[in-house]
Design a protein around this nucleic acid. Sequence first.
DNA 1: TTGAAAGCGATACCAA
DNA 2: TTGGTATCGCTTTCAA
Lengths: 332, 332
Amino acid sequence: MADVAARAGVSPVTVSRAIRHPEMVSDALRARIDAAVHTLNYIPNHLASALASTRTHIVGVVVPSLTNGVFDDYLGAIQDVLNPAGIQVLVSNVRYSEIEEERAIQTLLGYHPEAMILAGVDQTERSRQMLRNAGVPVVQTMDVTDTPIDLNIGLDHAAAGAAAVRYLYDLGHRRIAHLTARADPRARRRHAGYQRAMDELGLSTKGLVGASPRPSDVAMGGELFARIVAAVPEVTAVFTCNDDLALGTLFECQRRGMRVPDELAIIGFNDLDYCVAAVPPLTSVSTERQQMGTWAAQAILDIIRGSGRRPRQPQIDVGFSIKARGSTVRAA
Amino acid sequence: MADVAARAGVSPVTVSRAIRHPEMVSDALRARIDAAVHTLNYIPNHLASALASTRTHIVGVVVPSLTNGVFDDYLGAIQDVLNPAGIQVLVSNVRYSEIEEERAIQTLLGYHPEAMILAGVDQTERSRQMLRNAGVPVVQTMDVTDTPIDLNIGLDHAAAGAAAVRYLYDLGHRRIAHLTARADPRARRRHAGYQRAMDELGLSTKGLVGASPRPSDVAMGGELFARIVAAVPEVTAVFTCNDDLALGTLFECQRRGMRVPDELAIIGFNDLDYCVAAVPPLTSVSTERQQMGTWAAQAILDIIRGSGRRPRQPQIDVGFSIKARGSTVRAA
DNA sequence: TTGAAAGCGATACCAA
DNA sequence: TTGGTATCGCTTTCAA
């Protein structure tokens, strides 16, 4: 910055102002400074700037995964709100590990973000502690809880799991299987919702639950479903904890010559874009990922800019909806 | 930090040392300091630390997308190398836009990263300029070039496109179509490779190229392929610029009752994990995404730690391989 | 509208 | 092994 100042024949403070508050500097000087900035390829040091101003223009975002398509829309929505406001998003991928999440939170807080956005509501006590201490707005997304750290927007996964079961039940299914992979907390809640609904409907789940500790992929859907069929050949419907497993199940049916939806109905979760393209199109529980991202980012922006004014509604349940398609119902 | 020092009854410098170089502090003091750090929930200010030490422990990574599965393995590999070394990765998603990339590079450089990792070799001249000025190691990945900014690891996409065509040709195909979506530079090169190979083989591509400006998804694969069939019903093989389009094409075939591979052979690109699960499994051009990420990160680490010692081989072509599966060849 | 001085929170160097 | 001092690059008063 000193170099730029020297070249433009002004003091360093003026350079700082020309960049940070251009309206406070005369046109003539600003032009000279801009020129100097350009020819010297000067890039302000964010670290020094943040240190001096105590405004870091950073928001920390923790996501459990980038692998599955779920967090793209979400992250994209967050960036679409925050970046235009001059806020940089630091993303940390914690791969569904509470420990990694704890570490990530600590690391991110080291950058003194102006807010934090977390996925899920299952942070460790230490994580919660650090976040409260940080004294910045915290948004937990993707799930709902009675004891939010601060703000919270999400959906009730147990209710979603139960709704999927009821949907299949109403179509006449009684042998309803559930496939689930790496049991992250939200998938576990969907599973619990499945179990609860089955119990309430007086249906047995014996041999109908396929679970794997490994992260899910399409192939696993086929493997898990094959096991179910071996144990309970009478199975007529499957609810999977995500769309990958649903797609894998669909492929497995194609492999076995099982007709979907006639011999097996399939409902996935998330409603990723390939659902509509499959043959038959996959029914799925659709979630408002983008809306959650947008709301989280906007709430933060309002707080930061409105100097602490908090949203009227600090907690939101965005719900879910079932997109009924050919994998559960024949077209009219 | 002052608070911690006061509580432990030592000077701030000693606290700094206890955290940064624990071996330089006596056991007694270190214990007291650790205790104080813990009870006060002290988290060091990364910004101040970086500013004072001129070691930021940051590496900037620019990716064109998070939506497609391609960059997960890659990013994961980078983090797996860098994080254990105490280096934080700042990721910026530029959504296949050169302008956004330029902005992202500028922003990331503002954090004074110790190195930069970029995807592709098509940065703007201004981007290249900024990167050179930064005076830190720069790795361009995913593609190869004769004029790298610094280090380079990737593969020749034109060669890969041509190889896909030759592979189909050797299986007896003559009407070979190509589907391509949002024309990022590497997809364009694969397209060029397709065109070149077709020319060299004396094959016409008239009506055989389906392109869309929109970002690709599975559904688009079906739409593009439908157009091809309408124009050239005699088509017997399709090479798609990525696996999503290949999967969409496969679904479209299922919809039309076209048998794969008998009536249509399909080869995708990237070899994402769902390829093996599809029915029939999708043949795809496999790329070494993980290896590229690992190498880039490791090279950077060596330079940073080896105080500037550069890799013996500053440029690497990792090649590609064709995974032949049921969408092009019947099982023996 | 511009500049001088103080300080953001930590680290490196030197001295004790 | 510990502490004092200057400094990293910039921004924020405050004064001119």
